[in-house]
Computed example of a mutant assay.
Amino acid sequence: MLLSLCGCGGSTASVEPPVIEDYAPTGEVTFEFVIDEETTKSYVVDNVAAGSTLETLMRNLSSPKMEIGGEGTTAFVNSVEGIATNATRGWTYTVDGEFATKGIGTMELNPPTKIVWKYTTFEEATAEKE
C-alpha cells in the first residue's frame, strides 16, 4: 500500500491587521451664554471628543442651570438660568461664529470650538454677526 501526501503550494505574506481607533481626538469647547446686555457667562470644557453632540456636552455641564427637553433630534433648550423660551424669544446659538442650522442633538462638535448662546428672536439671531 502506497500512501501519498500532497501539500498545497502557496506563499504566505504578512498581513497588517486593520487599525482600530480606540480614541477620538479631543479638544476644548468654549461656551458663552449671553444672558442679557450686561451679563455673559463663559465656560471652558477640556477633553471633548470629536463627534460628541452638543446635547451630550450640555447635559453634563453643572453650570449654568439649564432645562433641556426632548432628546436626540428633538432636543431643545427650554431655559438657561431661569430665562425660558417663549412665543417670540428663545435660545439660539452659533458655532465658531456661524448661526447653527442643526438642533443640539444632531450638532456634532469638532474641537476646538466656540459655542455662543443668546436669548433673542430668530430674526435678531440670523441678522447678527459675531
Rank of each mutant, 00 (worst) to 15 (best):
T30D: 08
F31A: 02
N60C: 02
F33K: 02
E16M: 00
C6P: 01
T92M: 11
C6E: 09
E32I: 07
E71W: 08
G51C: 01
L2Q: 11
A24R: 08
T85Y: 12
I20T: 15
L2N: 07
A24E: 08
T73G: 10
E37Q: 12
L3V: 14
G10S: 13
S42K: 10
N86D: 15
E28Q: 14
T74N: 13
C6Q: 10
V95C: 07
R59K: 14
K41N: 11
D22Y: 13
T88A: 08
D36I: 10
F33H: 04
Y93W: 10
S63W: 05
G69R: 07
E81A: 13
L2G: 06
G27H: 12
V95R: 05
E71L: 10
T92W: 07
E28L: 14
V80H: 01
V77G: 02
K41G: 06
A24T: 04
V45R: 02
S79Q: 05
K65I: 13
S11I: 04
V77W: 03
S11C: 04
T30G: 00
Y93S: 02
M66T: 11
G69K: 03
V19F: 11
Y23V: 13
I20H: 09
E21Q: 12
G72L: 05
L2H: 04
S62K: 15
N86A: 09
D36K: 08
G72P: 02
S52G: 05
T53Y: 02
C8P: 01
K65T: 13
N47F: 03
D22F: 12
S63P: 00
S63I: 04
I68L: 07
L57G: 01
G51S: 05
L3G: 05
T92L: 10
V44W: 09
S4H: 01
V95S: 06
G72C: 04
V44N: 14
V45E: 03
T40R: 13
V44D: 14
L61C: 15
S4P: 01
I68N: 06
S79G: 07
F31W: 08
P25A: 11
G7T: 13
G27I: 04
D46A: 15
A13L: 15
T30F: 11
T94S: 14
A84Y: 04
A49G: 01
E38K: 12
G7S: 11
N47M: 07
E81W: 01
T73D: 15
N60K: 11
T12N: 11
G69Y: 04
E37T: 05
I20Y: 12
P17H: 04
R89W: 14
A50L: 01
T39L: 10
G90F: 09
S63Q: 10
T74D: 15
G82C: 08
Y43S: 07
I83K: 02
G10T: 12
F31I: 09
